[in-house]
Design a protein around this nucleic acid. Structure first.
Lengths: 206, 206, 206, 206
DNA sequence: GATGAATGAGGATTCATTCAT
DNA sequence: AATGAATGAATCCTCATTCAT
C-alpha cells in the first residue's frame, strides 16, 4: 500500500523517538525501555525492528547524517566563490533547523570518541573537510596559511554545529531558545557576517 | 567519619580519574567501578571520599570550572580593547591546554542539558556572557547589531570549546592531534586572525 | 485449523530439525526460533504444526522411541537363547545407527529426570526391562543372582546407549567418530564378545 | 578462622547448590536466580564470587572432576593385574557414591558436546583412556583385538557412569533407588563379575 | 500455511549503594 | 581508609506464545 514495503510506520516512529532520546541523553544514558515506552511499545518489541541497541543507534545516526552528506555533495557540485559560501551557510542552517537533533548526536559521538565515530569521521566529516580543503586551495583568503586551512574548516563546523548542539546550555543563559526560528535567522546573519569579514579575498585576487 | 575527610592524595586521584572518565564517556557511561578501578580502589572505597556518584560528578565539575571562572574574572578586571581580546584568547587557550578534559565535560553537560547544567549556566557561562555583553556595549565592531551580541559571544565559545571538545573527531579526520602543542598554537593563531577580521572597529569609531 | 493438520513434509522437517537440536542441546538449551530457522521457517509457523514447545518435544520423543519399542517387541516375540541375544544386539545397534539422535534424547531425559521421563520410563524402558527379566528368569547365566537381574539389564542399556549418547565425548578422546560405520561394527563385535563372556550358561544347564 | 582465607563458606555453598542444579537440569536449564535462591542469596550476589554463569559452571566442573582425576592417577600408580581391576572398580564406585552429581555433570557435557567438553575430554578422559590402553597393551584378555581396546575402556566408562547418571530413569523403572547404598553394593558386585567374565586371561597367557 | 509484530516473563549481568569488618 | 559481600533496581536481550493479516 505504501511505496515502501514492511511496516515503516512503527520503525520510523522508533527511529524518531530514539533520535530524540539519544540526542538529549547520549547512548549510554538512553535505555531501550525508555525508547519503547515513548514509542508506545514494550522493550521487547524493539527487537522486532532492530537487532539491538547498537543497531538502532547506528540506524538513527545513518538516517540523520545521510541527508546531510547528500546536501553537502550537492552544494559541492555548485560552483564556488563568495556567493557559494553564503549559499552553503544558509542551506546547512536550514537543513539543521529541520533536524535539530542531529548536531547533538554528532557532538555526542565526537566528544565521546565512540566506536561509531570512525564511521562518522570517515563517512561524513572527512569528505566534507576535503571538499573544503580543495575549495580553499583553489583560492582562499590571503590571511590563511595552507596549514591553517583544516582548522578554519573545523572552526566553521564548530560555529554551525555548536549553535545547535549547545542550545540547551544557551537556552539557560539567554532567556531565548537558540532554536527558535527568529534566533536561527539571526545566527545565520551572524555567520554570514563572519564569513564576509574573514573571507575577504586578498587584494591581489581582485 | 565525615565523607569530606580522607587523604587528600586519594581524593585528588579519584577526581583526576573521574574527570578523565566523565569527560570521555559522559556521566551515564561512566561507572563507579570503572573510576575506582582506574584509581586502584574498590567501588565501595569511593564512598569514603564522596557521598555518591552525583556528588563526585559535581566535585569534578566544580574543580574544573572554578579556575576557569577565576581566570575569566581576572581577565575581566583588566581593561578591554583590541589587545585585551588577544590576551583573553591566549589565556583561555593556554588554560584549557592544561585541562583538556574540561571542555568535554562542559560539552557533555551542555548537550545533555543535564540537571547540573543550570549550575554551569548560571555559575559560569552567564557571568561570562554578561561580561562580554558589557564589553561589547561599551564598544563593539560596527558590523554587529546589539541583538547579535549574545550570538557573537556564544560563537566564540563554540570556537574555543569546540576545538578541544571535538578533538576526538578531528583526530580521526586530520591525521594530527588537535591537542598537540603545535596545533594548539596554530589554532590560537587562527582564532586571533578571526578576532582581527571580525573585530575591526568601524572606521567611524576611529 | 487443527494444529494436527498441515503439509506432512513440513511437519516432518520440523521434527527432524527439532530432534537433532533437542538431542544435542537438550530441551532447555533449544529455542523454538532455532528450530524454526533451521527448518527454514519463522518461530510463529511452528505453531501451525505443534501446539507448543512441549508438544513438539513429546512428538519428537514419541516418533523416535516408538520404533524402538516396536523393535524390542518384535525381538521379544522371537524365541530366546544365545542366538537371540546376538540378534537383539545386532538389531538394536543397527536401528540406533540409523537414528543416532535417539540415544542422546533418551539420555537427556534420563539424566535430567525431566517431566517426560515417566512416560519414557513407563512406556518404553519398563516393558523392555520386564521382557528381559522374564527372559532371565526363564534361564539366566548361573553367575547372576535374581536380585542382580535388573542391574544386568540396565548395564546392557548403558553399554548400548552410552556408545551413541556419549559419542561427542569420545570423538574428542579418540580421534575417530564412534558413529562411523566401521566403529559401530567394531563396537557390535565388542558387545557380542561381552555377551558371550558374561552370558555363558552355567555348566549345570548344559 | 578457617584454614582457607576469604569466605569459603558462601563460595562453597554456591558451588554445592550449583553442582546439584547443573547436574539435574543441565547448564541451559539452570538459572542464576535459582542457584542464588537455593543458596539463600540474590542473583547479583553470585557475581561477588564468580565472574558469571560460565565461570561458575567451570568451577563446579573442576571441583568435581579434579578429585576423580587424582583418584585415577593414584590407582594408576599401583601395580596392575586382576586384583587391580577389582580395586579400581571398588574405588571408583565408592568415590562416585560420595559425589553422585558428578556423573550427571559429565554426561551433560558429554551428550551436549558443550564447549567445555574439550577440557573434560583432554583433562580427564583422555589420560584415563590412555592409562587403560597402556595397561591393556601390557596384557589384555585374549579375546580383545588391539583395535577394540578403546571401545572396551569406553564400555567400562559407560557401565560405571551410566549407573549413576541414569539413576533418575531407573529409579522410575525399578522401584528402588540405584544410588541407595545397597544397590550400589549390588551394582559393584555385578561389575566385578563382568570384569571376571570378560577379563579372564587367555589360557595361553598362563 | 506462513509471517511480522507485539508482549509478559524471565534470562544474565551491571550498577550504585550499604554495611560489617 | 579500604574492602568483601550483599542487594534492589535497572540494564540489554531472549523466549515462548499469540494474533491479525
Amino acid at each position: 500500500m505504501s511505496p515502501e514495503s514492511g511496516t515503516p510506520i512503527t520503525r520510523d516512529r522508533i527511529l524518531d523517538v530514539a533520535e530524540a532520546l539519544f540526542a538529549s541523553r547520549g547512548f549510554a544514558g538512553t535505555s531501550m525501555r525508555d525508547i519503547a515506552a515513548e514509542a508506545g511499545l514494550t522493550a521487547a518489541s524493539l527487537y522486532n525492528h532492530f537487532e539491538g541497541k547498537d543497531d538502532l543507534y547506528v540506524a538513527v545516526l545513518q538516517r540523520g547524517i545521510r541527508p546531510l552528506i547528500d546536501l553537502m555533495q550537492r552544494l559541492a557540485e555548485s560552483e564556488g566563490g563568495d556567493a557559494a559560501t553564503e549559499a552553503v551557510i544558509r542551506a546547512v542552517m536550514e537543513h539543521l533547523a529541520r533536524r535539530p537533533h542531529l548536531p547533538r548526536l554528532i557532538h555526542h559521538e565526537a566528544v565521546t570518541g565512540g566506536s561509531h565515530i570512525a564511521r562518522v569521521a570517515r563517512g561524513w566529516v572527512r569528505p566534507l573537510v576535503e571538499q573544503g580543503l580543495a575549495e580553499m586551495k583553489r583560492g582562499a583568503p590571503a590571511q590563511w596559511q595552507p596549514d591553517e586551512y583544516p582548522l578554519v574548516i573545523a572552526s566553521w563546523i564548530h560555529l554551525i554545529l555548536g549553535h545547535f548542539a549547545l542550545a540547551p546550555l544557551f537556552r539557560d543563559v539567554f532567556d531565548e531558545d537558540p532554536l527558535a526560528p527568529e534566533l536561527l535567522e539571526r545566527q545565520t546573519r551572524v555567520l554570514l557576517k563572519i564569513a564576509q569579514s574573514t573571507g575577504a579575498r586578498s587584494p591581489v585576487d581582485e
